[in-house]
Design a protein around this nucleic acid. Structure first.
Length: 297
DNA sequence: CGAATGACCTGTGAGC
DNA sequence: TGCTCACAGGTCATTC
């Protein structure tokens, strides 16, 4: 899936089209994605005006003028196609009405933008691990999906002291601890691998070893905190990573994948100057971890 | 309780 | 060329 930087990139693509727009019609083409849609999903959206497009962790939050929030998650393969004023971001597709529908276009949202033009946003998701639901604004922090989310890796909430508190006594490997959305919200497999490389820490190292007996962050944890923040910031600045399924909401390609040091680079030379090792792949919690056995301890 | 595993889906690329 | 297999950005339920 899109991890946090990709979701943030999608948010930035959707916001200028959706904010201030009126939803004219929603076509829901199947009863469920990962979860069933709420009852009368399309009906509840029709006629609503969008007041803001936000993000929390990997969730997109579309604020509506009736006090509800359309919550959308992209799963592993979700993406949006945006068409405005006859322009489409799907290659070869010029207008919604004449497009050859993809079998994986699951939700089509027709809108009138703030400027008065027509716009269509189509949600496409081959694997259907994504979902959409509606949550009252007043419940957004206590809702099951959000109540246990950890801090955002951007902004000031993530610091070494916080991570020390969460890692203390943990036997779980750093890879698992960083993927845990209740600790840091929004990290995924790619950026955890990259952050651990930048911090010079093995994905297998126990999280608790980065904390002193007194509960303070060790220097390595300071490095890791900075690495997480930096890799996420760099990826957002690059417009995310475009892998198999993921393209920016405007159809252009993010380019952070060219900046990967370790992810999907098994057998290739380590990028560190003077290091003669090759990147190794291991499986942890059923996911691939890529790392340099020399630089990461 | 924490940690590991399988399940949910389809598509793609590698290897034979 | 066509087949089979491993694997893919994420979570969630189940099991130890």
């Amino acid at each position: 899936m899109p991890e946090l930087p990709e979701v943030e990139t999608v948010r930035r693509g959707l916001a200028p089209v959706m904010e201030g727009a009126r939803i004219d019609r929603v076509e829901q083409r199947r009863a469920d994605l990962r979860f069933p849609f709420p009852d009368d999903f399309a009906g509840r959206l029709a006629g609503r005006r969008v007041t803001a497009v936000g993000r929390r962790a990997k969730y997109l939050l579309v604020d509506l003028d009736d006090g509800t929030i359309l919550v959308m998650h992209l799963g592993m393969s979700g993406r949006f196609l945006i068409e405005t004023g006859g322009q489409s971001d799907r290659p070869g597709q010029f207008h919604h009405d004449t497009a050859i529908a993809s079998p994986h276009d699951h939700v089509v949202i027709d809108m009138t933008t703030q400027g008065g033009g027509a716009a269509t946003v189509t949600y496409n998701d081959p694997r259907r691990f994504g979902f959409m639901t509606l949550v009252p604004r007043s419940e957004i922090d206590t809702h099951k999906l959000f109540a246990n989310l950890g801090v955002e890796p951007v902004g000031n909430a993530l610091d070494a002291g916080y991570l020390a508190g969460r890692f203390a006594g943990k036997a779980a490997p750093l890879k698992a601890a960083l993927l845990d959305q209740s600790i840091v919200a929004g990290l995924g497999n790619i950026y955890v691998c990259e952050a651990l490389y930048r911090a010079g820490l093995s994905p297998r190292r126990a999280a608790g070893t980065l904390v002193t007996k007194a509960g303070a962050p060790r220097v390595a944890l300071e490095r890791l905190t900075a690495a997480v923040r930096a890799v996420i910031a760099d990826a957002i600045a690059a417009g995310g990573s475009s892998l198999r399924d993921y393209v920016q909401a405007d159809g252009s390609l993010g380019y952070f994948q060219h900046a990967f040091d370790v992810y999907d680079r098994e057998g290739q030379p380590c990028a560190t100057d003077g290091c003669r090792s090759r990147i190794r792949r291991i499986v942890q919690s059923g996911r691939s971890s890529f790392y340099c056995p020399s630089c990461q301890r």
